[in-house]
């Protein structure tokens, strides 16, 4: 998004969304509430238990907060891909192809979901709370990790979004299927992966690299070893995983668009 043209597109979108001030405020607020209510679930459970998947309440809240920010970012930039079936059906995607810009950056910038800022905001507040309640031996690297991990997680979840929605180029009615992967990843990454059964973990933590969004970085921050036996350095490589995921998602998108234009099949 280095090109000024995308900055301008986004600025224009932001301006137009802000023009419905009341509805924007309400939707922003409901994002905050959604996030808060998901937190309530964790808190309710912890009125009955002391640990979930081997982690205490503040540790789980830490993972939840990082996942929340990551999901908010992903939704912010990639969430509008949910509307891809509408774009394809109405022919609007053809108009996207008629402009001298890449199709994916255009899709991401043309209807940016600014209200998702509410979710990011709620996540940041929760993260601040969690960080003051868990024991972390702070080092400069860990400070960097706290900042980078949610961003890298956002890139990972955004990549998941791109791949899941690309499937619409083949199966136009697959929106709900895509949602189960995107929103499902959002839900999955909010909890320690130790609570999930093997099959689910294999799919959502490693095939879809959900474990790198919040779980492994949180372990590194906490200085805890993985009950499932992953090496200690794994919490530091989420930016690398994010790069790989983004590269894969980009390639997959190009492949999907090629199919749409008629050379991919």
């Amino acid at each position: 998004m280095a090109e000024p043209v995308y900055r301008k597109i986004i600025a224009a979108r932001v301006r137009s969304q802000m023009s419905y001030r009341a509805s924007f405020a309400v939707e922003c607020l409901s994002q905050v509430i959604a996030q808060a209510f998901e937190l309530v679930v964790i808190l309710v459970l912890f009125t009955r238990i002391n640990a979930l998947g081997g982690f205490g309440v503040d540790e789980v809240v830490l993972m939840f907060a990082i996942a929340a920010i990551a999901f908010g970012f992903a939704d912010l930039v990639a969430g509008q891909l949910d509307d891809l079936p509408t774009f394809i059906r109405s022919g609007t995607f053809d108009a996207v192809l008629l402009r001298p810009l890449g199709t994916l950056p255009q899709m991401m910038s043309t209807d940016i979901r600014l209200r998702r800022v509410g979710r990011v905001f709620a996540g940041v507040v929760t993260l601040a709370y969690a960080l003051t309640h868990v024991n972390i031996d702070w080092t400069p690297w860990k400070v960097l990790l706290v900042v980078v991990a949610p961003l890298a997680g956002g890139v990972i979840l955004g990549s998941v979004w791109v791949v899941a929605c690309s499937v619409c180029f083949w199966l136009i009615e697959s929106r709900e299927l895509a949602n189960s992967v995107t929103y499902g990843s959002g839900a999955f990454t909010s909890y320690p992966i130790t609570v999930f059964s093997k099959g689910l973990r294999y799919l959502m933590a490693y095939v879809v690299p959900g474990a790198f969004v919040a779980y492994y970085p949180s372990l590194a921050l906490l200085g805890r070893s993985d009950p499932l036996g992953a090496p200690g350095w794994i919490g530091w490589i989420s930016p690398l995983v994010a790069l790989v995921a983004a590269a894969f998602a980009g390639a997959f998108w190009r492949f999907a668009v090629r199919h749409y234009r008629g050379t991919g099949s």
């Binding site: 224009a12 023009s19 109405s90 022919g91 609007t92 053809d94 108009a95 008629l98 043309t110």
Partner: peptide, 9 residues
């Protein structure tokens, strides 16, 4: 039949 303009701008 399909717009290339931004509908809310």
């Amino acid at each position: 039949q399909r717009s290339q303009l931004w509908w809310d701008l």
